[in-house]
């Protein structure tokens, strides 16, 4: 916060505004959840929500959010739609594994290049994958930019490559919504190299 306040562009604003500005989205989100919990859109629940949100953010000092997270609302909506679709389709695939192979089902642990250095984007990427049936994040190696994934289903090398491509594709979709243009370009290049 201190370096933010000493930056030339922030000098004109009062101190509290510089402190609150990066938190506005978090306050809006917490207020939204609070109002949903009450189930009524009354002025009292909204004001109460803002008070609680400010109190929560004041009490739990999260690290300040990174300054620029490019958010593309349409792509984000597409991502949410894809996650729902993926839950159904991958869910059916897991069910097929269960019914067809059962005790003979196989899995694989493989690595995928992790293209974003933003903690928040990495969190979304890891969670998006873990939400998909049959796959989960096992380990993230930030230093080497590697992402280790467990997938249920691959029975041979070709199956592993297929799972790897799907994982890369999931990452590309998240980067399309939240990543920088360079990260997205890298993801698309890597996917093209693997031929799909």
């Amino acid at each position: 916060m201190s370096e933010r306040a000493s930056a030339p562009s922030a000098v004109r604003r009062p101190r509290w505004a510089a402190r609150v500005r990066p938190r506005v989205l978090e306050i809006v989100w917490l207020t939204f959840v609070w109002v949903l919990l009450w189930g009524t859109f009354s002025p009292l629940s909204i004001v109460g929500g803002v008070v609680v949100a400010v109190a929560v953010i004041g009490a739990f000092r999260f690290p300040p959010a990174e300054a620029h997270l490019p958010v593309r609302p349409l792509r984000l909506l597409l991502l949410v739609g894809y996650l729902v679709y993926d839950m159904v389709v991958s869910g059916a695939e897991v069910s097929w594994q269960v019914l067809r192979y059962g005790p003979a089902a196989r899995g694989a642990v493989f690595e995928v290049p992790l293209l974003s250095s933003s903690d928040r984007v990495v969190t979304v990427v890891a969670n998006a994958l873990s939400l998909s049936p049959g796959a989960m994040t096992l380990q993230i190696d930030h230093a080497h930019g590697l992402w280790f994934v467990y997938a249920l289903g691959p029975r041979d090398g070709a199956g592993v490559e297929r799972s790897r491509r799907r994982t890369m594709d999931m990452q590309r979709r998240v980067l399309a919504a939240l990543g920088t243009p360079e990260e997205l370009a890298t993801a698309e290049r890597l996917l093209a190299e693997r031929g799909c």
Partner: peptide, 26 residues
């Protein structure tokens, strides 16, 4: 139900974890 069957039929912990968490969420 399919998640529960997977929990019984799948061979190891990570596979069962898939059956126990994902179809359950859906």
């Amino acid at each position: 139900l399919l998640g529960a069957i997977g929990l019984v039929r799948l061979p190891d912990l990570p596979a069962r974890l898939q059956a126990a968490t994902k179809p359950q969420t859906l």
